[in-house]
């Protein structure tokens, strides 16, 4: 904008223009300074955690918390090793329930959105309203019945006991299965909304053309809608994976104990490094990073898709 006006202005006004241009440049500098300052604000807690996680107790006492250990002798990766030993089973468990429920959520959500958006019938707005309201229901409002349902009524561990003799299957997989079902059920509303936001923009005439071409409701989904929703599937996978991985309340109540063989990564992290002498911060920081690693990785690789999921 400023450049354009400089080229069109008269030479006599150059002095006045110069001041304006300088002002804008100064403004740009201020803008970038602010933006970089904000980067500092958002990254400082994370950066501080990272440098702390590799400090020895001496290093911890002798450096500012946000500075890296300045002496090579103050660096140790022992805490990472310890944290990893604690968290590794939890990471496996978290993967075991996060991936299946993410996939189930995406499939069921896409189907629900299709049935509620592209096939027109009366009353679908009411059903849809129930789906959307489901996004906002606080988990506290269902957590006691949920706990009752799994622990008193279903008792999957006992019911499926015939399975645990099979190779590769272990009794704590019952809890994992409970978590898969639970996360799927509570993930469906938001995923349905995400898919619906895309399906609403799909050309109605195209769906009608496919139906006139002889395709049944199912075939329209299979051959037209599904191939066209692949980008949205990517968004949903990334968003939902992060959400389920990060979740804590269900882990806490359904799994119950940090020592349970089915304990998730977030659950183990919540109890990591607690002792009577106080909190072992380097260990906690290392644990936090290990727990966050899958989500961090996904986020760094697919930040745009994540943002797209957040926007809807």
């Amino acid at each position: 904008m400023s450049e354009k006006s400089v080229t069109t202005e008269e030479a006599a006004e150059q002095t006045a223009m110069k001041r304006v241009t300088d002002g804008i440049t100064l403004g740009r500098v201020g803008l970038y300074a602010t933006l970089i300052g904000l980067v500092g604000f958002y990254l400082l807690p994370i950066e501080s955690g990272l440098v702390t996680s590799i400090k020895t107790p001496t290093g911890l006492d002798n450096t500012f918390p946000f500075l890296p250990p300045l002496d090579a002798g103050w660096i140790t990766f022992e805490k990472w090793q310890v944290a990893f030993d604690y968290l590794a089973p939890g990471m496996v468990n978290s993967m075991l329930f996060t991936i299946p429920s993410t996939i189930l959520c995406a499939i069921l959500g896409s189907m629900a959105a299709y049935g509620l958006t592209l096939v027109d019938w009366r009353g679908q707005i009411a059903v849809l309203a129930l789906f959307i309201a489901g996004i906002f229901v606080p988990y506290q409002a269902v957590i006691v019945p949920l706990f009752q349902f799994w622990s008193q009524y279903m008792q999957l561990g006992a019911r499926l006991s015939f399975l645990w003799g099979l190779p590769l299957l272990e009794p704590h997989y019952a809890t994992i299965l409970e978590l898969i079902i639970t996360h799927t059920a509570y993930g469906i509303p938001i995923v349905t909304l995400l898919f619906r936001s895309q399906y609403k923009t799909m050309s109605n005439e195209m769906i009608e053309a496919a139906r006139l071409d002889g395709a049944s409701v199912w075939r329209v989904y299979r051959r037209i809608v599904l191939p066209l929703s692949i980008p949205m599937f990517a968004v949903v996978f990334i968003f939902q994976f992060t959400q389920i991985w990060n979740e804590f309340l269900f882990s806490l109540t359904i799994i119950g104990s940090t020592n349970d063989p089915a304990a998730s990564a977030t659950l183990i992290l919540s109890g990591l490094g607690q002792s009577l002498e106080g909190t072992d911060y380097p260990l906690r920081m290392a644990g936090a990073f290990i727990t966050a690693l899958p989500t961090l990785l996904v986020y760094v690789l697919f930040a745009d898709k994540f943002a797209e999921g957040v926007q809807t």
């Binding site: 050309s203 005439e205 053309a209 139906r211 071409d213 395709a215």
Partner: peptide, 17 residues
Amino acid sequence: AKDRDIAMVFQSYALYP
């Protein structure tokens, strides 16, 4: 519609992208 043996050309063409 799918059993009517009718073909339709739409204003937006409605091609499958």
